[in-house]
C-alpha cells in the first residue's frame, strides 16, 4: 500500500464518522455528569471530620488517579458480571470514565473550597447556619469560580479519553474508524478524519476554556 488519499472515499465515510461523533459527545457528556456529581461527593467526604475514612478515601482516589483508565474500563466491564452486575458496554464505560474523572474533579473542587476565605465560614457560624446551609448557600457558590478552569480542562480531557471506550465495543468515533478500516482495508482516511474531528472539537473548546478563565480572573480581580 502506498500513500493515496481518496477524497470520494473520505466523503463517503464522513457521515458515518459524524454520527459516531454524536455518540462520542454523548459518552463524554454522560461521563462528565457522573464525574461532576461523584467528584463533589468525594470532595465533601474528604473534608469530613473522621480521620480514618478520610485517609482511606484519599488513598483510593490516589489509586484511581494513578492507574490507567483502559485497565479500569476492562476491570469494570469484565468483573461486573462475575459479581452479578451485568453491564452493557455503555454503562460500564460511563461508570469507568465517570469514576476516573471524579477522582480528578474531587481535587479541583477541594482546591476551590479551600480558596474560599476563612472569614466566610466564620460568618456562617456567627449567623448560626447549619453546615449544610453554609456549604450550599455560602461556600460552594464562591468555590465554583475557582473550580471552573480545572473543570473545563477535565471536560476536554474526558472528551479525548472517550476513544478508550472502543476497547469494550462502545460504538464511538474510534470504534467506527476501526470498523471502516477492517471492512475496507483503508486506514489512512478514517484515522486521519478521526484526528481532524478531534482537533476541530477540542481546540475551540480548549480556547473557550482559556477565554473563560481569563474573563473570570478579571472579574474576580485576580
Amino acid at each position: 500500500m502506498t500513500f493515496d488519499w481518496k477524497w470520494d472515499f473520505a466523503l463517503e465515510i464522513l457521515p458515518r464518522l459524524l454520527r459516531a461523533t454524536l455518540n462520542t459527545l454523548m459518552a463524554a457528556g454522560a461521563g462528565y455528569a457522573i464525574a461532576m456529581v461523584l467528584g463533589l461527593v468525594f470532595a465533601l467526604a474528604l473534608r469530613s471530620p473522621w480521620h480514618l475514612p478520610r485517609a482511606v478515601l484519599r488513598e483510593v482516589l490516589e489509586f484511581i488517579r494513578s492507574t490507567p483508565l483502559v485497565v479500569q474500563i476492562f476491570f469494570i466491564f469484565y468483573v461486573g458480571p462475575q459479581v452479578g452486575i451485568t453491564l452493557s458496554p455503555w454503562v460500564a464505560g460511563m461508570t469507568a470514565i465517570g469514576l476516573h474523572y471524579s477522582a480528578y474533579l474531587a481535587e479541583v473542587y477541594r482546591a476551590g473550597i479551600e480558596a474560599v476565605p476563612r472569614g466566610q465560614w466564620e460568618a456562617c457560624r456567627a449567623l448560626n447556619m447549619t453546615t449544610r446551609d453554609s456549604y450550599v448557600r455560602i461556600v460552594l457558590p464562591q468555590a465554583l469560580p475557582h473550580a471552573i478552569p480545572g473543570m473545563g480542562n477535565y471536560l476536554v480531557g474526558i472528551f479525548k479519553d472517550t476513544p478508550m471506550l472502543s476497547v469494550i465495543g462502545v460504538t464511538e468515533l474510534m470504534q467506527a474508524a476501526n470498523s471502516i478500516g477492517s471492512e475496507t482495508y483503508r486506514f489512512l482516511e478514517p484515522y486521519t478524519l478521526v484526528g481532524v474531528i478531534f482537533l476541530a472539537l477540542s481546540l475551540p473548546t480548549a480556547g473557550l476554556v482559556r477565554l473563560g478563565e481569563r474573563r473570570l480572573r478579571r472579574k474576580l480581580g485576580l
Partner: peptide, 24 residues
C-alpha cells in the same frame, strides 16, 4: 503541541502504527 494535545493518544497511536507505514 496543538495537534498532539488536541487529539487522543489512542488516535495518535493508531495513526502512527497504521497510517505512517503508508508514507513509507
Amino acid at each position: 503541541i496543538e495537534i498532539f494535545r488536541g487529539t487522543s493518544l489512542l488516535v495518535q497511536l493508531y495513526w502512527i502504527f497504521f497510517v505512517l507505514p503508508l508514507f513509507g
